[in-house]
């Protein structure tokens, strides 16, 4: 879901860059020195996860997994996902330079919002509870990302209206898949290492 350079209108680019700067400022303030290695290694984890292709019918989609990033990192997911996008742009040529702000806010803001909204429910535990809220978080993050990509395109010119609509409709299966994967991942993490969700592990086992 990387928009390339040259497609968007200048006001959209500036708004995206400003929003990303704000998100980075909040995210970095919450990122203490102690948590830098955690956020860095997890950011690499999300980078690798985004290279995984999951089959869907005769085609396949690559994962984004921004929902689980938000669940684990909260606001710190903003700089973590930004770094991943920067690296994808600089080393693979995915996306571009002037659109980096728009791309970052489109992926990272939904992650933070979905993650913070669903985190308190997941922390309550319980199999069905974790699966349901994990699924909601994963699907919601992708849905919001898709809406934001569509809005960025639609605001840049009428000629993109159909494309904006197409982006949303074609990503509905991706929402379902990301929801299912996030639910499974959240359930596994809850059983194996609940500290990832900010819960302390039982020490005396």
């Amino acid at each position: 879901m990387h928009i390339v350079d040259g497609a968007l209108a200048t006001p959209v680019l500036i708004a995206g860059a400003a929003a990303t700067a704000g998100g980075l400022a909040i995210g970095l303030r919450q990122l203490t020195t102690e948590r830098i290695p955690t956020a860095g290694v997890l950011s690499a984890g999300f980078f690798v996860a985004s290279l995984i292709h999951v089959p869907i019918g005769i085609s396949s989609v690559h994962l984004i997994m921004n929902g689980i990033a938000g669940l684990i990192l909260g606001w710190a997911a903003f700089p973590a996902l930004f770094v991943g996008l920067l690296l994808q742009a600089v080393t693979f040529g995915f996306g571009g330079i002037t659109v980096l702000g728009v791309n970052a806010v489109n992926i990272a803001l939904p992650a933070v919002l979905a993650g913070i909204a669903c985190r308190s429910f997941i922390r309550k535990g319980g199999r069905n509870n974790v699966l349901i809220w994990g699924g909601i978080c994963g699907a919601l993050a992708i849905a919001l990302t898709t809406i934001m990509v569509s809005v960025s395109l639609a605001l840049s010119g009428e000629e993109f209206n159909e494309a904006a609509y197409l982006v949303f409709v074609s990503h509905i299966p991706v929402m379902v898949i990301e929801g299912a994967l996030t639910a499974a991942a959240a359930w596994l993490i809850m059983q194996v290492k609940p500290e990832l969700f900010g819960l302390s592990q039982m020490k005396d086992v």
Binding site: V41, L42, A49, I68, L181, A185, L188, L196
Partner: peptide
């Protein structure tokens, strides 16, 4: 299975 895979990768990363 892919969900567990991603979860396990993140746990090991942590």
């Amino acid at each position: 299975s892919f969900g567990y895979l991603v979860g396990m990768m993140l746990i090991r990363a942590m």
